[in-house]
Simulated scan of single mutants.
Amino acid sequence: MQDDVVFRRFDADDAAWSVAQHRKLYDDAEGFDDSFGDLVEQIITDFLNDHDPLQERGWIAELNGVRLGQIFCVKLDDRTAKLRLFLTVPDARGLGLGKALLGACMDFARDKGYAKMQLWTHESHEAACALYRKFGWELTNSKPVHSFGVDLVEQSWEIEL
């Protein structure tokens, strides 16, 4: 990863970018319909309106003011954090940015006293799933579904911190 990439806290000014990136990238890569972007928008709205800044955080990765990626750590319960909205833009892939974002998110969860983390994704996200495995995450559930206008294999992952 380039030394001049910075991670900063996600804020309300990032919301439109995040929703637009999710809509475009998931439509282009997988044919997702607008219901996916609507879900992302609701997750972000809920986070901005109701997150606990001491126990939850969103990050934006930037290079020279250009957003390259994001990740969120949110509270499920006192012991469990959930990784959400992990994304890197196509031009930033393969540079180690995903590793750095995932590491920062997991370190934050450990530092805040969470004992484990969970996430939800799709089997088609091969690079992300390979990264989760590399970091020690375990696949806990996998099932075929029809979501966001397409047939998918939904996955749940978990890691003890």
Rank of each mutant, 00 (worst) to 15 (best):
residue 99 K to F: 06
residue 26 Y to T: 01
residue 100 A to P: 04
residue 13 D to K: 13
residue 122 H to S: 08
residue 40 V to A: 04
residue 74 V to Q: 06
residue 41 E to W: 06
residue 40 V to M: 07
residue 116 K to H: 09
residue 144 P to C: 07
residue 122 H to G: 08
residue 20 A to R: 15
residue 139 L to V: 08
residue 10 F to M: 09
residue 92 A to T: 03
residue 32 F to V: 00
residue 54 L to Y: 09
residue 31 G to S: 04
residue 47 F to E: 00
residue 26 Y to S: 03
residue 63 L to N: 12
residue 9 R to E: 15
residue 49 N to P: 07
residue 68 L to N: 02
residue 124 S to T: 12
residue 21 Q to K: 13
residue 128 A to W: 03
residue 8 R to S: 13
residue 97 L to E: 02
residue 138 E to K: 14
residue 58 G to P: 05
residue 83 L to F: 11
residue 60 I to T: 02
residue 126 E to P: 01
residue 56 E to M: 03
residue 27 D to R: 13
residue 32 F to T: 00
residue 97 L to V: 03
residue 32 F to R: 00
residue 126 E to D: 12
residue 110 R to Q: 04
residue 21 Q to Y: 09
residue 2 Q to L: 13
residue 104 A to Q: 11
residue 78 D to F: 06
residue 132 Y to G: 00
residue 52 D to T: 04
residue 127 A to W: 03
residue 60 I to C: 08
residue 77 D to P: 03
residue 70 Q to F: 06
residue 94 G to F: 07
residue 8 R to F: 12
residue 104 A to V: 05
residue 8 R to I: 12
residue 68 L to R: 01
residue 139 L to A: 07
residue 119 L to R: 00
residue 50 D to Y: 04
residue 90 P to M: 05
residue 9 R to M: 14
residue 104 A to C: 06
residue 56 E to L: 01
residue 15 A to W: 10
residue 11 D to Y: 07
residue 20 A to I: 11
residue 31 G to H: 01
residue 16 A to L: 15
residue 139 L to G: 05
residue 85 L to D: 08
residue 20 A to E: 15
residue 32 F to N: 00
residue 67 R to W: 06
residue 94 G to T: 03
residue 135 F to N: 02
residue 42 Q to A: 12
residue 82 K to A: 13
residue 97 L to H: 00
residue 46 D to E: 13
residue 139 L to D: 05
residue 93 R to V: 05
residue 33 D to C: 05
residue 11 D to G: 15
residue 53 P to A: 11
residue 13 D to F: 13
residue 76 L to Q: 14
residue 108 F to N: 02
residue 140 T to D: 06
residue 22 H to M: 13
residue 128 A to F: 01
residue 14 D to V: 09
residue 82 K to R: 11
residue 96 G to L: 02
residue 132 Y to C: 00
residue 107 D to Q: 11
residue 101 L to K: 00
residue 105 C to P: 04
residue 95 L to D: 05
